[in-house]
Simulated scan of single mutants.
Amino acid sequence: MDIATIELFVISMPLKSPFVTHLGEVREREGIIIKVTDKDGVEGFGEGVAFSTPWYTEETVRTSLHMLEDFLIPLLQKHPINHPEEAAGLFQSIRRNPMAKSGLETALWDLYAKGQGQSLAKMIGGTRDAISSGVVIATDTITKALKQIEGYLEDGYQRIKVKINPSQDYEFLSAIRRHYPNLPMMADANSAYTLKDIEQLKALDDFNLLMIEQPLAHDDIIEHAILQEKLVTPICLDESIVSFEDARKAIEIDACRVINIKIGRVGGLHEVIKIHDYCYERGIPVWCGGMIEFGVSRAHNIALASLPGFTIPGDISASSRFWDEDIITPEVKVEKGFVTVPDGPGIGYDINEKRLQQVLLTKKTFTI
């Protein structure tokens, strides 16, 4: 990999409608697009998916920029690599900061796949030509939720995820079940509960949910094991799984029976593939989570979800779910509940340069 330059584009776009959870409300999405160009002019793209504020993890757009500019890019300048898998080992000298690492590592994967003339999906072991698509309901009233669900089902989405918290769970889910008794549905708590709420969470077994995602603390595994023993509904871990070792330990103690995999949360595709393979060998279902991404990260998620272990529809919705206009072309579309996996080189999407410039805040270029 004869890298010539690395460019960082900080962009910002308004969401078509607010994304609401008990942790806060997102109306404007800021992020980092990372472009790696080799000496032959081949370009690879990745996306830093940290938010502007540390509500989901401790990382933010600003901290990611700091890590990229002052540590990760200098490492590549000093230590050239031949394959994107080598980046994971190179970045181990820096603790945590997985979203900054992932943004750069995924750009390297896209560049490498394009250099090999191969789709990223096939390169990492993908077996599907199309992936099933789910969508998230994140609003504060039952009326709004039912209206959103009606629209998404018309669009063909195959699974609905509902954001819940202790003041908005049983009644909320009950209303949805009355309207849609057979709807494939899961609930996402984003760490809103504690073990004091066991009886409240046990009551949610009434709704035949696919899973309850991250009900307890964002960094917990032990108490989730205690809770899982009391529930019929499978627990899915999200924020608690930031590495392969976290996944291995959680599975060993039965802290969860499903894992949400996000490339940015665990530091890149190399780590994700390790987690996928471990779960696949043990019959643990996995699915691809979303981060209110722009098109670049969405494209990487599509490639990832083509792996055989991704048996549950992920949070990979159409570009139009969040944006009036995305930064990739063609935009991601959901047709009859599925997203086609591109077979072109790399991620299989091009950058919409005009749109990128329209939403650009700052740009920095580094010579390797």
Rank of each mutant, 00 (worst) to 15 (best):
E69C: 04
E69W: 07
E69Q: 13
D70Y: 07
F71S: 05
I73S: 07
I73L: 06
P74C: 09
P74K: 12
L76N: 08
L76V: 03
L76H: 08
Q77N: 04
Q77L: 03
Q77D: 03
Q77S: 10
K78N: 10
K78R: 15
K78C: 10
H79L: 08
H79T: 00
P80L: 11
P80D: 02
I81N: 15
I81K: 06
I81C: 09
N82S: 14
H83F: 09
H83N: 10
P84V: 00
P84G: 03
P84M: 02
P84E: 05
P84F: 15
P84R: 04
E85T: 15
E86S: 06
E86H: 08
A88R: 12
A88Q: 12
A88L: 13
A88K: 11
G89W: 12
L90S: 05
Q92K: 14
Q92N: 15
Q92V: 06
S93R: 13
S93A: 14
I94H: 04
I94T: 05
I94Y: 10
R95N: 00
R95E: 05
R95H: 05
R96W: 15
N97W: 08
P98S: 11
P98M: 12
P98Q: 14
A100V: 02
K101E: 03
K101P: 14
K101L: 14
S102M: 12
G103M: 12
G103S: 13
G103W: 13
G103K: 12
L104W: 13
L104D: 11
L104C: 12
L104T: 04
E105H: 12
E105K: 04
T106E: 04
T106Q: 12
A107I: 02
L108N: 02
L108Q: 08
L108I: 00
D110S: 11
D110A: 02
L111D: 04
L111P: 07
Y112R: 03
Y112V: 01
A113D: 02
A113N: 01
K114L: 09
K114Y: 14
G115L: 05
Q116I: 08
Q118M: 07
Q118T: 07
Q118C: 06
S119Y: 08
S119N: 04
L120S: 06
L120K: 11
A121I: 00
A121T: 05
K122L: 11
K122S: 14
K122F: 08
M123A: 10
M123Y: 14
I124R: 02
I124Y: 08
I124T: 02
I124K: 01
I124E: 01
I124H: 06
G125V: 01
G126K: 05
T127I: 03
T127M: 13
T127V: 03
R128W: 01
R128D: 00
